[in-house]
Each structure stands twice: as C-alpha cells, then as structure tokens.
Design a binder for these strands. Sequence first.
RNA 1: GUGGCUAUAGUGUAGUGGUUAGCACAGGUGACUGUGGCUCACCUAGUACGGGUUCGAAUCCCGUUAGCCACCCCA
Length: 460
Amino acid sequence: MLADNLGEDGYIEVLWACPVKYKSIFHRACPVGFHYLRRLFMKTKFQSIRGTYDILPKDISMWQYMESILRSLMDRFNYSQIKIPTIEKTEVFTRSIGKETDIVNKEMYTFKHISGDSISLRPEGTAGVIRAYIQNSLYKKEKFSKLYYIGSMFRKERPQAGRNREFHQFGVEAIGSNSPYIDAEIITILDLFFKEIGLRNYELKINNLGCNKDKNRISKILRKELEPFKDQLCSDCNRRLKRNVLRILDCKKRNCKKVVSKIPEISELVCDDCKKYYDDFKHILDTLNIKFSHDNSIVRGLDYYTGPVFEITCRGIGSQDAIVAGGRYDNLIEQMGGPKIEAVGFALGIERLFLCLEDIPKAKVKLDIFIVIVDSKFFQIAFEFLYDLRKNGITADMDYTIPSIKGQMKQADKLGAKFVVLLGVEELRNKKMSIKNMTTGEQFQVGMDKFIEEVKKLVR
RNA sequence: GUGGCUAUAGUGUAGUGGUUAGCACAGGUGACUGUGGCUCACCUAGUACGGGUUCGAAUCCCGUUAGCCACCCCA
C-alpha cells in the first residue's frame, strides 16, 4: 500500500534530502513510514560484512606484483600450483586441524548443506590440499609432490589490523619425504622470497615437537611437571593444563614464563631419532647461513604438526605479528585416510606480509596512446582507431565522457599516456592525425593510412 | 568470544552545548573559444546509523554497526 502511494524514487530522495531535524519529526509522527522510507532509500547502502574488505584498483598492482614474484619463485623451486575448493565437508577440517582447537571449535563458518552434510569455508589450506592429494591419488602418479596454493581463508575472529575474517594465504606443501633437506628447502623458499621483496625485519624461530608418540608422552610429562606450580599459573594456563598443555609454553604472562623456564624444554624430551632429525635440520640451515633461533614457545595450534615446526614473526605490526607458520606433519595423510606418507609445509599471511613491507612497488600500466577528439561527432572514427590500436597490441584509451579538449588532455596526462592523438576538423580534411609526445611536447602529423605503423614504431 | 578506545566530504583533519560545520589534498568547471603538467578563481561533497536529554547536539547519554588496541586464538 505505502509503496504504491510513495511510488517513484525521486520523491523519496527529495524527502530524504531534507534536514535531519525534519526527519526526526517525521520519525516521531510515523515511525513505520519512516523506517519503510529509510529502507527504500538506503537499499544501495550495503557495506561489506565484518572482517572482509575490498581490494581496490589502486591496491591491486601490489597484489599482482606479489603473485608474480611467488609464481616465478615457485617455478624455480619446481613446485606446482594447486587450486582447491573454498568449501569442504566440515570433517575435512575437524579430522586434520583437531576438534579441540579454537579454529575448528568456534572460528569456522559452518553451515548445513541441503544434502544434510555439514560444510565449512576453509579456515586454512593444508587440510584441503591433503584431501585433494588423497582423493586424486597423486601418490600413485608421483612419489614426491611439491604443491603450492594462493587463496582466501575464512575465520570468524574479532577483526583487527592483520586479522580479517576473509584473508589470503600463500602456502606450500612438500609431500613424500622425511629428509631434513626438504624441511630446509621450504625455509629457503621464504629466505629467497623475503630477499626479493626486500623484507628485512623478520625473525625465524624454530622448535621440535617430536613425533606422534613423543607428543602424547611429552604432554603427560609437562602436565606432571607443571602441576606443582599450578597456583603460580594464570587462569588461562590452568585451563590449558587440562585441554592443551603445550600452549602454556606460549603464554605471555611473566609468572607463567617463569614457571615454564623451570621445566625441561620439549625439544629435550623428544626421542633420539627426532633429536637427530632436528639437529640435522639446524645444521643444514647453518650451512646456508640462514639465521634462526630455537624457541621453546613455538608450539603451533593445529593438531597435525609433528617434528620441526617454525614461525616467522615481524616486529612493528602489532600483536598479530606471525606472518608465516609451518612445520612437518608426518601423520596427517594417514590420519585422513591416505597411505603413510610424510610431509612438510607452511602458510604465509599475505595481508600481514603487506603490513611488514614498507615500500611496495606499484607498477601502474601506462597508456601508449590516448585519443582526443575535438567534437563528439568524431567519436565513431576515434572508436574505430582505438579498436585497431588495441588489435595491434597497443595500450590505448579515450575519454568516454567527452569533456573539453583541455579536459581530455588533462585526463591523458593523469593516466600517464605517452602520446596523445588528436582528431579534429583539420586532420580529417587532410586525412592526417596529429600526434603529440607528452614527455617532450613535440607534435607532428602522420597520414591516416600509415597511422598504425607509425604508432607501432613510436611505442616500441 | 572477553575487555577497552574511536567514528566529521573520496582521503587526512579543525571544531569542548548556539559557527552558514572550517582547512588541506583529491575530484569537477573555467581563466586558455584546438592542447596536459604550474598558477589562480569557482563548484561538488561531510557530522556512521538509530534513539534519548535539551529551547538548542558534531559536541552529553544509550543502543546498533564498523574500525582499531590488548587478550583468547592464530596467518
């Protein structure tokens, strides 16, 4: 009813343009009508949902730059890209990341599919890659797979700088070997990557969680060791004592740190094989002159990690300072229903990396040619030339709003056009085009029939 | 998820209960009737949303939304 009477948008807009105080009066007099109108008028005022954001044209070049570096890097290391779905059955994540972890427990976007299955937006990449690896029997086609991915991940956390609900990760998985050299290789990927993009203020911290058997044994030992100090631990750590002892090693509170320093380190509690593996790994890094520090507090939150784990942090970007995390996961593939195959990998948060970088190169594509027309009746002929230029591989554009000559020139300048082609009465009569070099200011004419050839010479 | 801080044109900001809501950059138009960058003039555009207190609110209070900070957790 109301909608019929109110009718056109124009009326609503006029009404909505009135001062706020009149709208308040209206609101008091007729709240229902007010909210109805508001909804009609505000219908285009959507905003992106919390924790998600738009990457606008002005920022896209740095993303493309980053991706191109990553691709060339991965080619050199002989890794192949894999693209996997954004949604998976929820169990893919619960089986791998662990039911008890917060990521699975409270941070996943999970909903019921029409089939009745529970499906989730991926909160990380490894689980899906391993699912794809097993499903497509990649292990039967090759004994060793080196894969990488770039894509969106989703976690329902409270957003803050360096923490979004949809964010991007670059990840690498090397599946099929348990040589410490492959662990070292993925570190060298990061080392070279950071050198190439000019990231300096980062720290590599490593630790050794031990094999699957060790992990359970170590948890028991730690619980036993920490029990006497229960009163000195914070309330969070008391909770962790039952649920996830390892996390106590990562607590930032001073008292908890003190307690932790009194008990043995995890890397000392692991079995002899794991100790040797870790020593070899460290030795290889030393031979390459890659700086790292052993850190007992690096415990990782995802259940699937075993053996050497690592984290790269970057100072000065706030509390969310971990830009890369990774490590070995020798049991995951078997745990997810595949054969017993060892693997190692990492994930890098691209947004966090951008926060760390001071200078991000912005390569803006420059126009070769910008066509300026003196009168809108030359639009058709200009448009045909534009088509020809582009067909011949030349970057070209014109102003479709057709302002004054001056306005078009300004536009050409703003877009960084190298040459402006001017089409006017004079030119058309003589079948010539005027070409202006925007750096030198020189201007000359060429015949229309030779135009494309001339331009090709110019922009080469 | 817990606790806290913040919200003014596209961007960065000024404005401590009564201002025509000021400034800079960006954007548009013109000076320059067929020529960009510099300069000058003019124009466009804002109190996040909703409610309350008050004669009067950008300013005080409440709620919502969003961002930020710390925690939880994590890339």
